[in-house]
Design a protein around this nucleic acid. Structure first.
Length: 905
RNA sequence: GCGGAUGUGGCGAAAUUGGUAGACGCACUAGACUUAGGAUCUAGCGCCGCGAGGCAUGGGGGUUCGAGUCCCUCCAUCCGCACCA
């Protein structure tokens, strides 16, 4: 009886669906396990073979935990708001909701073919009004909260202490100035090509992360989330999480905490205070000038009249530069002198004030005290403009002659008045004392993290549920009016002024509100990240109409035990959702401070491209090994017509019409293709579709092979070449159960000791491996086990039955079929994972490797009960060892029980 | 520049606390069986050497009875961040 995977898989997928096999059990007496995947954005091109890698791992883990007696929550959903569907709508006029639904349908089919144990009753889609109702609701919670610095947590805005004697307008402004979501006129990353504002996180190297379009800076009215209030907690919260160190570090670096001091200098004429941030107050005596960012508000006030023109020209030039250009031009420093002077509050010295774009308005105070002797940037600037470079810290307290670069390290003070000869580490706290004594500042902590620009001028996103009243107030839409849904629009294009397409829909924007009268709706929508900030909470209770999730369910299921997804979300999604979660925690809506206890980053699956080599100006193709003999150009060839790097010539001729008459120069009768690892993409013809693999080999083979490919965390190229090995394993496994005629051929006789040992060892290994998130080694373990059982001719019913259970997380379809054939009426998912027994793993005799002076020499067998730590050299009386020792008395015998004996002579 | 990760046969990889390096699989070689296959089975397969044996985990050094694993140093590749004061 052959292993008919196609019918078996179809049959069981049907069975699971009909019997609700994967319905989440909420029996709260059992321990819970919440296994979460990063849900996909349903793109138009469907899944390729790399996408399900993490899902397969989490599915194995979920199924394993279920067999171990846990209630498992293993949901799936779709991050269905986003740019590609909107771009497509702009091009075709097709409503993004339709495109999205079609894509989701395709994704679900593909996912179902792989045999995941997702509970589809828990599915969420972020663009579903029943879902984004609660995204809007959470937005309003943030809008109606403020951050209490003293208690270090968010609180309802009605509890905010409002200063007395404020006019109504001032009161309003005060409250708005404390909300966790607020409006601000700020410099934003405007992307003309996408027609929207992007978060700093979405801009890399001056271009948009998606699409690589140029981004410029421009002031606009924006909705902003006060994530900076949580900077400290977002750092400290990382400590208790089982996350990869690299991700924790990325988040820490992103938040960018630095200890230092704020120091206020005074401008000489206007007496304007200029506050700078520095991490090195100990270099206060080395300050030889100040620098303001071009956007700094004081630039205009303090610059002298004769310098105004050149300064304005400089500022104008700087503002035209995009971040990209600023970064590109980083080689030489530019700047202008304002003509103004400042007084060093500690030394009393008078120093020049300059403007330069190497100082960023967005970090610290937008002004720096320049210490050219201790900071490389200041050094370069001072060199270029002939400003004084004063050494205040050197390794030995003596001036370095011929200073070619700044000395940023620690050392001994010099040129610092009364403090010469101090160690810089000791002077650091003293310098802060001096600054405080001068009433010019204090020690502070500064963060790189900036508040999160939380809106996009786009159609396909959650509408922001805010109303602008006629008298200029900004008020929240009533909760009972949520969800606020998207109106139909004629055009999905954003307007040139940067307003969203919603702004054109008059009847949607201008409404007569029962509570606030004539109001104008906010026309911005939320950014792509909004929906994914909290989806893991909605999974607990997606049907709930009264709350985003049931508090009891939250208490039971949270936190997420294992969250598997790509490392590309290290700082974006994972920081935002932690922020929202902490706000919800402060407001009492969730039971944990952190959402994701354990995080695992699966590696990327790269493509493995194949190449053919066309001899120039011909339709002849030369095999890889012979290409040097000809003048040839490489050409991508579809990996689906290549097997083990050998080209299928017929298929190649049929691939494209222009290749129908292709000729080949073969080596050893074969056409061998070249290979290169690249990103998987259509244009490189290296996309491998899981549907095709499933058709040829089955979902069980796909699942096991994806795991077998290598460690989950590691990035690796997809290579279909090795898949036969895994497929062969499943065939062998299948054949263990049947005789030649296809009848079940099992015995109830006592299995051999050897068979018991092999199988129980497999149970132990597989269990231990899964628990340490190693999914590739169990596959090997199963292979060893099955090969061994075949050698031993073992067909013991009990052992094989248990093996079916152990294999079921990896290969659920074949396991169900065999389980059923073994006479069980219930699904194998209801079974218990087989417990290994120590007694079968023990050996009677242990074959010890003996090494002499660290070199492996021979082996010797001991009864297991002799294996003690205090084994004496006498045991080496064995002839074999004596021969190696040449009769010498060993000096020392080192015995590692169950491992090795090392003899030192 | 700063930070992180990785480096083991022809290839993907194993080696959980330092203890027989290369398990398992692919590819390859030889053989068996044939209803001639993209099937199945058996054996071989790190390198040098006829052999005993020697050499091998990116290079060099160290600790140890013993190092892929720990320490120092250099090199290569990949991935983040990047005028953050």
């Amino acid at each position: 009886m052959t292993y008919d995977f196609q019918n078996i898989e179809k049959k069981w997928q049907q069975y699971w669906k009909e019997n609700n096999t994967y319905k989440t059990n909420t029996d709260t007496s059992k321990p819970k396990f919440y296994s979460l995947d990063m849900f996909p954005y349903p793109s138009g091109s469907g899944l390729h073979v790399g996408h399900p890698l993490g899902y397969i791992a989490s599915d194995i883990l979920s199924r394993f935990k279920k067999l171990k007696g846990f209630n498992v929550l293993h949901p799936m959903g779709f991050d269905s708001f986003g740019l590609p569907a909107e771009q497509y709508a702009i091009q075709t006029g097709k409503h993004p909701a339709l495109t999205t639904q079609e894509n989701i349908k395709r994704y679900k089919e593909q996912l179902k073919n792989i045999g995941f144990s997702f509970d589809w009753d828990k599915e969420v889609q972020t663009s579903d009004p029943n879902y984004f109702k609660w995204t809007q609701w959470i937005f309003l919670k943030l809008f109606n909260s403020f951050f209490d610095e003293e208690q270090n947590k968010a609180r309802p805005i009605d509890e905010l202490d409002i200063p007395k004697n404020l006019s109504d307008q001032e009161k309003e402004a005060f409250i708005n100035g404390h909300r966790l979501v607020y409006q601000d006129e700020i410099q934003v990353n405007w992307c003309p090509a996408l027609g929207t504002v992007l978060a700093n996180e979405e801009v890399t190297g001056g271009v948009s992360e998606r699409g690589g379009h140029p981004v410029v800076r421009r002031p606009m009215r924006q909705w902003v989330m006060r994530i900076t209030s949580y900077a400290e907690r977002l750092i400290s919260g990382l400590e208790e999480l089982d996350w990869p160190e690299s991700i924790k570090l990325s988040q820490k670096n992103w938040i960018g905490k630095s200890h230092g001091a704020e120091i206020t200098f005074q401008e000489k004429n206007s007496k304007e205070p200029i506050t700078v941030f520095t991490t090195r107050p100990d270099t206060i005596f080395g300050v030889t000038y100040l620098v303001l960012a071009p956007e700094h508000p004081l630039v205009d006030k303090i610059s002298t009249s004769e310098r105004k023109a050149s300064i304005e020209a400089y500022i104008d030039e700087a503002s035209k530069k995009s971040d990209l250009e600023r970064a590109e031009l980083d080689k030489t420093k530019t700047g202008v002198f304002t003509g103004a002077f400042a007084i060093n509050p500690v030394s009393g010295e008078e120093i020049q004030i300059w403007v330069s774009d190497y100082v960023l308005i967005s970090y610290g105070t937008g002004a720096v005290m320049a210490v050219p002797g201790g900071d490389q940037r200041d050094f370069e600037f001072a060199q270029k403009f002939n400003l004084e470079i004063r050494q205040v810290i050197t390794p030995d307290g003596k001036e370095i002659e011929e200073l070619n670069e700044a000395y940023p390290g620690q050392g001994i003070m010099l040129n610092s008045g009364a403090y010469n000869g101090w160690k810089s580490e000791d002077f650091f706290p003293k310098s802060i004392e001096l600054i405080e004594a001068a009433g010019a500042g204090k020690a502070t902590i500064n963060y790189k993290l900036r508040d999160w620009v939380f809106n996009r001028q786009r159609y396909w996103g959650e509408p922001i549920p805010i109303l602008h009243t006629e008298d200029g107030r900004v008020v929240a839409e009533d909760e009972e009016n949520l969800p606020l849904t998207l109106p139909e629009v004629e055009s999905y294009e954003p307007s040139e002024s940067g307003e969203s397409p919603l702004a054109r829909i008059e009847e949607w924007v201008n409404i007569d509100h029962p509570k606030y009268g004539k109001v104008r709706r906010e026309t911005n929508t939320m950014p792509q990240w909004a929906g994914s900030c909290w989806y893991y909470l909605r999974y607990l209770n997606p049907e709930n109409e009264n709350l985003f999730a049931d508090p009891e369910a939250i208490k039971y299921w949270m936190p997420v035990d294992v969250y598997i997804g790509g490392a590309e979300h290290a700082v974006l999604h994972l920081l935002y959702s932690r922020f929202w979660h902490k706000v919800l925690f402060d407001l009492g809506y969730v039971s944990t401070d952190e959402p994701f206890q354990r995080l695992i980053n699966q590696g990327m699956i790269q493509g493995r491209s194949n190449f053919v080599y066309r001899v120039k100006n011909t339709n002849t193709f030369v095999s890889h090994g012979l290409r040097k003999d000809h003048d040839s150009i490489p050409m991508h060839v579809d990996v689906n017509i290549v097997r083990n790097d050998e080209l299928d010539l017929e298929a190649f001729r049929n691939w494209r019409s222009d290749l129908a008459d292709a000729e080949f120069i073969l080596e050893d009768g074969k056409y061998v293709c070249g290979v290169e690892v690249e990103k998987m993409s259509k244009s490189k013809y290296n996309v491998v579709n899981p549907d095709k693999i499933i058709e040829d080999y089955g979902a069980d083979t796909l699942r096991m092979y994806e795991m077998f490919l290598g460690p989950l965390e590691q990035s690796k190229p997809w290579n279909t070449n090795g898949i036969d090995g895994v497929h062969k394993f499943l065939k062998k496994f299948w054949s263990l159960f049947f005789d030649e005629k296809g009848n079940l051929n099992l015995s109830d006789e006592e299995p051999s000791k050897e068979a018991l040992k092999v199988v129980h060892k497999t149970f132990k290994k597989v269990q231990d491996d899964i628990e340490r998130f190693s999914f590739n080694t169990p596959v090997s373990e199963f292979m060893i086990c099955v090969n061994r059982l075949r050698e031993l001719n073992c067909n013991n019913r009990d052992l094989l039955e248990k093996l079916v259970i152990a294999l079921s997380p990896f290969a659920p379809h074949i396991s169900e079929e065999l389980w059923n054939k073994l006479g069980h009426s219930e699904s194998v998912t209801k079974a218990n994972f087989p417990q290994y027994e120590e007694k079968y793993l023990q050996e009677d005799v242990f074959e010890y490797p003996i090494s002499i002076n660290g070199k492996m020499r021979t082996k010797i067998s001991f009864p297991v009960d002799m294996l003690q730590d205090d084994m004496k050299p006498e045991i080496l009386s064995n002839e074999v060892v004596q021969k190696w020792l040449e009769g010498k008395e060993p000096k020392k015998v080192i015995i590692v029980p169950k491992r090795i004996v090392n003899v030192v002579v």
